[in-house]
Computed example of a mutant assay.
Amino acid sequence: MSDDDVTPPFGTFPLVRPALDVGEELAAPVARALEKWADTEAARSVLYVDTDPDKADTAVFCAAYDVPPELSANCVVVAAKRGGDVTLAACLVLATTRLDVNQAVRKHLGARKASFAPMDTAVDATGMEYGGITPVGLPADWPLLIDAAVVAAPHVLVGSGRRRGKLILPGTALARLPEAEVLQGLAG
């Protein structure tokens, strides 16, 4: 497939390529996860779009690249605590919604307390850049909680593991990621 054959399902981007063809543009864990994803159909459905890291704020980004905000999703790293144990998990919600950390996430993970993980913790644990953390390529032992509205979207834009560039993939493909759990009411 040549560059000219790749058309994103939404948005206007200077470069659109199959993500499997641009491993060097992705954070290392993301590139490895795409290459090793057992669901090859899902892996082939992922597109990489080049974007300016200075336009990463959701409102600015959506305006600059003609992306509907309801098709943009945020991957948030959460630290869930119970006793002395801390469990890191990733949560994926649409950018137009707010993650319910205190109820939905805390209860689902069986934690006494849940909060957004500190930036340094999220970056160190994922091997990804802050502002580009994505559900593709997370540590294998992490729960990945995905709001049902994300999976229902025909296509969703998520991070690429770096601040430059994003991934676009079918919502249903996200549900097929390792450790993914689709939950109703994860976000409001």
Rank of each mutant, 00 (worst) to 15 (best):
V77A: 09
A117F: 10
P69G: 02
V77S: 08
G23K: 11
G165E: 02
L99S: 09
D120Y: 01
T126V: 07
S160W: 06
T126N: 08
V22I: 09
T87L: 13
D5Y: 00
E25A: 15
P18E: 10
L26N: 08
G171E: 01
A90Q: 03
D3N: 07
M128S: 06
V86I: 15
R106Y: 09
P69C: 02
L92H: 04
L34Q: 11
E129M: 13
R106M: 10
R162M: 05
N74A: 09
A122N: 09
A89S: 13
R164N: 05
A149F: 01
A153G: 02
T126Y: 06
T134E: 03
T121H: 00
A117G: 10
K36N: 14
D3A: 14
D3S: 13
W142C: 03
S45F: 00
L20R: 15
L144R: 11
G185H: 10
A125S: 15
D124R: 15
D120P: 00
T12Y: 00
P143H: 08
D54H: 12
I168P: 04
A95P: 03
L47N: 08
G11W: 00
V182L: 10
A173V: 01
A153V: 00
S2F: 05
A180Y: 13
P29V: 07
G137Q: 11
T172D: 12
W37H: 15
E24Q: 11
R98N: 07
R44D: 14
T51K: 10
F116Q: 14
G127Y: 08
N102T: 04
V150I: 02
V46Y: 01
T40C: 02
A187F: 05
Q103G: 09
S160L: 09
I168K: 04
V156R: 01
E129P: 07
L34G: 11
A80M: 05
D100Y: 05
V77W: 08
E24C: 00
L145K: 13
E179H: 14
V93I: 15
G165Q: 02
Q184D: 15
V123G: 07
V123I: 10
K36Q: 15
F61D: 02
W142P: 06
E181Q: 15
L138E: 04
